[in-house]
């Protein structure tokens, strides 16, 4: 390419590409903005729009906690502390402490995968800001409670049954490790 034609080409390229770029940006004036006006200008709470698998702040349903310590063992950073002792007289497992340090929790979901009943599970709650690290500890046991013991047949206790069915549904959708659960959707 001779110098003159290169010179002319440079000008032409510059002008035409800028023209094209301006057309793209101009077209954006006519499109809707994408941003979400969090938190006060949304029709619903953002927590309600999050997908089921969203890994938010952990929650424990003590009613169906078996005290098996699977979650405590699965946790890579030891943010779950469970104290479960066998009562010498009643021969029952007594949960006297179930604390989760959600300041330390990294929301990996390994604990809720390990849970046999779906007792420990993630919620869609994510707004956990607080003023001190101590206040970020979730203490689930107020008074020592007896751990849940799986029954042979279906759960009959009307107080526990709905919680357990929720927990099992949670496990179903979470596709328990092992992969035995059927696929969530039909393949093409």
């Amino acid at each position: 390419m001779s110098a003159v034609s290169e010179y002319a080409h440079n000008i032409k390229d510059t002008v035409s590409t800028i023209f094209e770029g301006m057309a793209v940006t101009a077209s954006h004036f006519m499109r809707k903005p994408y941003t979400v006006q969090y938190p006060d200008r949304m029709p619903v709470r953002v927590q309600d729009t999050l997908p089921f698998r969203y890994r938010g702040i952990l929650e424990v349903d003590l009613e169906i906690c078996t005290g098996c310590l699977a979650c405590e063992r699965a946790c890579p950073i030891d943010c779950i502390v469970i104290v479960a002792d066998k009562d010498q007289q009643t021969r029952q497992l007594l949960l006297s402490q179930f604390d989760i340090d959600i300041a330390k929790c990294m929301y990996c979901g390994l604990c809720s995968e390990a849970c046999p009943t779906g007792s420990i599970h993630h919620t869609t709650e994510f707004e956990g800001a607080d003023y001190s690290l101590e206040s970020l500890i979730r203490r689930f046991v107020k008074d020592p409670v007896i751990a849940y013991k799986a029954k042979k047949g279906p759960e009959t206790d009307p107080r526990i049954a709905p919680i357990l069915s929720r927990g099992m549904a949670y496990l179903d959708q979470w596709a328990q490790p092992g992969g035995e659960k059927p696929a969530g959707e039909e393949p093409a």
Binding site: P51, Y54, R55, Y107, C108, Q173, G179, K181, A183, E185
Partner: peptide
């Protein structure tokens, strides 16, 4: 929607993936 996190996915496991496509 697939794995519940936007940045630190922790989606895969030794031997496969944790969750099937929803």
């Amino acid at each position: 929607e697939l794995c519940g996190a936007r940045l630190t996915f922790n989606y895969m496991r030794i031997g496969g993936v944790a969750w099937d496509l929803p």
